[in-house]
Amino acid sequence: ASVAVIAAGTQGNIFATSALRSMRFLQILRMVRMDRRGGTWKLLGSVVYAHSKELITAWYIGFLVLIFASFLVYLAEKDANSDFSSYADSLWWGTITLTTIGYGDKTPHTWLGRVLAAGFALLGISFFALPAGILGSGFALKVQEQHRQKHFEKRRMPAANLIQAAWRLYSTDMSRAYLTATWYYYDSILPSFRELALLFEHVQRARNGGLRPLEVRRAPVPDGAPSRYPPVATCHRPGSTSFCPGESSRMGIKDRIRMGSSQRRTGPSKQHLAPPTMPTSPSSEQVGEATSPTKVQKSWSFNDRTRFRASLRLKPRTSAEDAPSEEVAEEKSYQCELTVDDIMPAVKTVIRSIRILKFLVAKRKFKETLRPYDVKDVIEQYSAGHLDMLGRIKSLQTRVDQIVGRGPGDRKAREKGDKGPSDAEVVDEISMMGRVVKVEKQVQSIEHKLDLLLGFYSRCLRSGTSASLGAVQVPLFDPDITSDYHSPVDHEDISVSAQTLSISRSVSTNMD
């Protein structure tokens, strides 16, 4: 405001104040949320940038038409019409005319000016109207692209899951042992070998009828009888010197917790746990005396209480009078009846079946994303299906024409109403129809010849004498029936064969 007042002088105070007050009108834009329509302006900018070359070309040609039209109309009207006294007036008329506004304040009066105005109007309006069409088509394409992008975003994750499931299904095939990355992934998420051994031990116990592997080994086996189970490696608790092959000598807290839970599941009659010990102070733990958990001091820290809870689970003690015997301790020893080589084939089979199920689920979810969402998608899918159906029908028609023997030239002739090819031409065609016709002709010829021969033979049998045999009239074959199959017997006289037959029969009768 200060700059405006200084620039306008003393009389500019009122002007500056009114100008600043008129800017209050811009507050109405906040009512229509114009300040939060950044996406709309961004869309407009992207459309203009995408079609910038077309817009520049249309505007450039339109500007050239405007300059030439205004100049030529000015030359034609400057002497006869006072409205075109300057080139600026003519340029104003050209702008209003070519933009199809047409105020009518300035019009050419001479015939030359009117002809020039009409010609440049028809030429220039087309170029001035091009930017509107370019922007409209650009907006339509952009909206369609955003629509497809939205659908693509919805299909991206199911497609990625389907590709991942397909690759993992491919890589978990037993015949592709060189693909090891997927197996490394499952090695990292699978439970430890100790848990798998416990699982298979329970399965084997159920197969043995509820007997433990130790009891199965204690059962008497006759001499020479084959053992029911192959000899396997035996594993004891981590306190002993022997372990399962492939295990580490260090046992983690999870393994100890699972070991304690498995020992508690063996039965309360074979294992008696004394009350857990509780320390009397955060600094020292008295293991010899058993106290109640309700006497825990409230001033303990979080670490002390955590250690106390761990001691409740991981440090059970047995009383002296209830101490288990050596046999019970041997039964409680952890027996590992299986090795990694025995378990891994079954584990890989389970993983393979899981990968198949996940692949089928991913495939079903991806197919669900291909379903249409709204009416536009339904129409688009219907149009695509219609085009596909037309293509299939056209391909089927082409194959039928190839089989029947109607080529493209014959199809055009039928469409024009011309006469089709004759039967002889159809026979000569190298097509399925021509071959079928040729075979039918040959079969008819053979059938006719057989009928003639059978009739001749029956007449010979009825006559009974050589004289009557020679008097029999043998009809000749019709050459038209034989089609294109020409037998060497067709052109010979059958009477010669009949005479030869009669001579042979007379000779045979004389010999008798």
Rank of each mutant, 00 (worst) to 15 (best):
P275S: 15
Y170N: 11
L312V: 11
L452M: 08
S269P: 13
L190I: 08
S506A: 04
I189M: 11
R406P: 08
L273V: 15
R265G: 06
L387M: 10
T465S: 07
A165S: 11
I379N: 09
K416Q: 04
D377V: 01
Q499H: 10
A166V: 08
D374Y: 01
E289K: 07
E195K: 07
L476M: 08
S261I: 14
P213A: 12
S299T: 09
D173Y: 01
F477I: 09
P279R: 14
K298T: 06
A471G: 09
R392P: 01
V400A: 14
M432V: 06
R168S: 01
S463A: 12
P245R: 06
L454V: 10
V221E: 07
I430L: 06
E425K: 06
S333T: 05
A362V: 13
L454M: 13
I356T: 10
K358N: 14
E331Q: 08
D484A: 09
L390V: 01
R237L: 09
S311Y: 12
V328E: 14
Y185D: 12
P220L: 08
E327A: 07
G434E: 06
T369P: 02
P316R: 13
V221G: 12
A165T: 05
D187H: 06
Q442E: 12
G434A: 07
P220T: 14
G288D: 12
A225T: 09
A206D: 11
K419M: 03
E195A: 09
M174V: 07
A181S: 09
R364K: 06
P238Q: 12
E447G: 13
Q499R: 07
T182N: 08
I430M: 13
S495Y: 05
K419N: 10
L338F: 12
G239R: 00
K315N: 13
R305P: 15
A197G: 12
S502C: 09
P268A: 05
L338V: 06
Y382H: 11
E380D: 02
R207G: 05
R317H: 04
F366L: 13
I351F: 11
T369K: 12
N510K: 13
I189T: 10
V489L: 09
Q402K: 14
P275T: 12
R459H: 13
R435H: 05
G417C: 07
I494T: 08
L199M: 07
Q442R: 15
V427M: 11
S353F: 14
V232I: 14
A165P: 00
E326D: 11
T339P: 14
G288S: 05
P421H: 04
D255A: 07
